[in-house]
Design a protein around this nucleic acid. Sequence first.
DNA 1: CTAGGGTTAG
Length: 625
Amino acid sequence: MPMRYFRHQWRRGRVGNATSALHDFHKLKGNFISNSVPLPSINPFSSFRLGFQLASLHSNSSSNGDRPRSKFQKVTNLDDALKLFDEMIQRRPLPSVVQFNQLLNAVTKMKHFSCCLHLFKQMRVIGVPVDEYSMSIAIKCCCQLYRTNDGFALLGCCFRRAVVPNVFIFSTLLDGLVLEDRILEAERLFKKLIKQRLCEPDVVMYSTVIKGLCKFGNNVMAIALLRLMDERGCKPNVVSYNTIIDSLCKDKMIDDAFKIFKEMVFDKGILPNVITYNSIICGLCNFCRWEEVSKMLKEMEDEGISPDFQTFNILVDAFCKEGKVDEAEAVIDIMVERGEVPDIVTYSTLIDGYCLRGEMSKARTVFDSLTSRGLVPDVITYSSLLNGYCKNLNIEEAMLMFHEITKNGLKPDIVTFSTMLQGLFRVGRCGAACRLFDEMRAQGQVPDECTYRIILDGLCNNHQVEEALSVFHLVGGSKLNSDIMVYTILIDGACKCGMLDTARNLFHDLTVKGLQPNVWTYSVMISGLCGEGLLTEAKQLFQKMDECGCPPNNVTFRVLLQGYLKNQNYDDVEMLLQQMDGRGYSLDATTLSLLIDQVAAGALDRSMLKLMGRLVPKDLMDTPV
DNA sequence: CTAGGGTTAG
């Protein structure tokens, strides 16, 4: 699933992603960005870099609890497995079902699910008796292939074959439902299992349902189930807790995550593991809570838990997003020192970090070094670099990159195309963009809502609002047209081209469609009204926001303020500033300079300067206005 | 003897 549009993907892989969409909008609308998180001036990681080096003195011994393995479990490549299978079915008498199960399991571990299903089918044809074990493996394969319904069909076979489905089989099916986002069905099945006493749920089954609830964003219910299982005598373990901790972190509820973490450790005496720490560290990184990240790393070390490959990748990513590529490089060095091998993701992240800083030649150097490291760039790596070139307006180099993908036997995916489209629009090459769009569809890539937004936004920004509207109407009633972002883009485009009536109609349309305007939609509409001098209407809309449960944010206030100032309407300015102060909002450079101009011109009273001063963020103080 | 659940990422 392409998830690369957004740098901050709090709810990765979950149902709904409103937050990421907002972030995307941030990216699309550079003109609105002004509340970036200030970087700490001191290096927050200096303390634990030392920590890593100390930790690296510990030997990196792997656990050695390996029992002797049968030859069926030892098979590590598919060809060997298939050969062995053929040999097994020739034998008379046939090998036991246990041996077949071991082989099936080995194939599943290699993630060759459809192959495993094929073997399973053959077993049944030949008449190897299948049991609970083979059934659960086969069902797992169905589920992993997003064919949970086929899994249920196999469950039917269980009954016919007098195989009694057990807690393993039902857990697998529940997991399949969760994987396909069929949470309600999962809940229903779970309740049925308990009510009809079809099996006694154990810790794995409870954890699976907890995962489902978390995936649906229902942390409260997930925690309730955690309590319930405990009450029913099924002790939650570290996995049950990790599931919830991770979910809370993804939902920005880090402090709740800490609460559950402490409960796990201090009340239940369950030891956290590296996964627990990775979840929390990742959550903290997403919020730039560096000191706590540092603390957690220290704590890990004290507990004798080594950071693993994923811990390092999280840190590399965090540093890159903060623009601290040198630190990211340092983490990679430590990683190597400790015997972990950075993979293509690690380096792609690094490339992205350099691109973000506009250091394209360094990004390129990393890219070019991949082959010598024995790594093969994939589509995503190419797209990262391509994205960098686009963002830094080097469209020629981006195009070269784009062609390089096909030359190397890879297929540009929907994200690659969308990135390239965005780049072309950004430099005003609409014709080329439209041709690329045709090529994309010719290659069988179906544009998604993000591609669609890029195209509409691109057209609008190049003064082709009519064109954008006709694309919009062409797509008609599809789900693409039930997207609040799309409406916001069009409303913005229409406003900027002086088509206020069109903008108003669109704004009206979306309420008719039952779509809820968000704070951006309101801001864009208010900005448009102000641009036409319709201050009363703008003010009315602004006041409606609180009533509609969509309170104005920083941007809305600035937009309205600018509207007042540019239209020489000074009556409400002080009131707005006071409201901003009350809500803890701040002024950006543009609005501030407009205000100061008016004070200088005598249109605004000097007494307001004090209020303005309070609204200026610290980092703006340093730069002269 | 053999089967089910939790982490990161471009």
